[in-house]
Design a protein around this nucleic acid. Structure first.
Lengths: 157, 157
DNA sequence: GCACGGTTACTCGGATAGCGCCTGTCCGAGTCCCGCGGG
DNA sequence: CCCGCGGGACTCGGACAGGCGCTATCCGAGTAACCGTGC
């Protein structure tokens, strides 16, 4: 899976306890990541309607929806694309008894089984929201959210 | 996901109703795939102990275990490798409040959530066996198994 | 004191190289079958 | 007729290029804040 997914998730989590826009460069500095590339990932999130961008001074990225309304699946799909990881190429079309017109996405038992597994994965991701993660962090590491918030808010060193 | 996974699964399914070795070239001809590359995938299955290989005339590949003892997860792991798709790079080590010695694979809530989702996926794959797929095929398309078996057994055209 | 316009600096946004993995291909080592010759 | 042996062909197995997507980078367009000026 693309590594950018991890960056996007961490970015969303940190944005969830910020009430004003944060520049991509600030987030990148926090994680020690290359700023231009993180910017690229955030653009993908913006296109998906997960974050909104503001140009100019005091600008940056900000969550578009409430953290509880952003599922992990939303973020993954925004970065990785909507297509499933396992894509049935319907190779049975070329088999001796294969019907070139046959619908092997629905009929092929292998396609069905792999799709079912991937559906379980997506269901799990859709059941967790960025808000849930934020609550977990606050419960496990009390005060760390405020600490990060203040670091994000302070002027660049 | 690698396309070779689909080929490996179809190969295992067809091998499940064969009682003698089938050459890689024969399987490749059945699906209209490049033979040398399918051979490469079958080698990976052989290293994983899913199929056994026999050299020389009348040789080929044969299932090493009973179809009911081969899960879809076994095949996927044999081709894709054992590492999970989402790998936590522990970028929190570089954060201002990050502990370089901290164990962020176990502590990071993002890593936990993604691992949980992937576990659901693997559980689903581990619950289905090649034998189950063969039974489904025989129930949905009666006689097709015997048809393929005879095609595999007949001499090359 | 207030409003306004120009300047400035800061931000996003898209277009551009580099690299690694999967796809696709090839030829050599090993092995089993088959036919022949001898006993 | 039976046994042993050599040739041959077939199979796997690993080593070798090509293409695509992710990673990483850069610079330009746009915009909001700021400051100075004029009223």
């Amino acid at each position: 899976m693309a590594e950018g997914v991890e960056w996007a998730l961490h970015s969303c989590l940190n944005l969830s306890w910020m009430d004003r826009p944060v520049p991509a460069a600030r987030l990148a500095a926090y994680f020690g990541l290359p700023a231009p590339y993180l910017n690229k990932q955030l653009q993908a999130l913006a296109k998906a309607g997960i974050v909104s961008s503001t140009s100019g001074p005091k600008g940056g990225f900000r969550l578009e929806r409430a953290p509880r309304k952003i599922t992990l699946l939303d973020v993954v799909v925004a970065i990785e694309g909507p297509e499933p990881a396992f894509r049935c190429t319907e190779i049975l079309h070329a088999s001796p008894f294969g019907d070139p017109k046959g619908d092997y996405l629905a009929g092929c038992v292998i396609s069905q089984a792999m799709t079912a597994a991937e559906l379980a994965w997506r269901r799990e991701l859709a059941a967790t929201t960025v808000g849930d993660l934020a609550a977990d962090v606050e419960r496990k590491y009390p005060g760390s959210a405020r600490q990060s918030q203040e670091w994000m808010a302070q002027a660049r060193s």
